[in-house]
Amino acid sequence: MEIPYTVHPRPDTGVTNAKVGIWLFLASEIMLFGGLFSAYIFLRMGAPEWPGTTMSGHYYASASDILSVPLAALNTVILIASSVTIVLAWASLMTNNFSKYRIYMGLTILMSFGFLIVKSIEYSTKFEHGLFPSESTFLAIYFVMTGLHAIHVIGGIVVNAYLLGPGAKMWKTNPTQYTNRIEVAGLYWHFVDIVWIFLFPTIYLI
């Protein structure tokens, strides 16, 4: 059965069904990350010291003593830049420039991998120093929140890679629906960016 209103807006909502679907999904994602942010505030406000006095024999006075602010700032720049390239990919399709779209979508995927590489460097440095989630409440919530975010980045890579690869055939048969798909994929990717925009200062800097 074909999904209705994927090309033209549904008369009663004024938007395509795909857009209604992605915004409902993003609403559930807001509650997911909102719950984790609430848990973070709850744990932090209830803790006598934050991030904790000693871990693995070292004294840590603040979160930035444990975590790498330069690496996280680099990842912030990477994600913001990838948000720009995915919206430029959509804009290229809107002006019927498919080759430009491929460049921008390719750059988005490359930067997504860049984000994961930086994150894996960060994680491996922690593990080398014996800083595991079980070491402290701070490390537990840090790994849960950044790990869940990284899973979302991987999900975005899978979708974007499909749309750039096998899914791109649709551009020849139904360009409007394909452009709508890129817009919807972009909405998800911008949400992943917004989550990181809040994660960066709350976990790394405060």
């Binding site: 948000s83 972009g186 911008h190 917004i194």
Partner: peptide, 14 residues
């Protein structure tokens, strides 16, 4: 600052 940045992304990119 984070809210301002998030609003910009939501308002213009989304």
């Amino acid at each position: 600052v984070a809210t301002f940045k998030g609003t910009l992304v939501a308002r213009y990119f989304m």
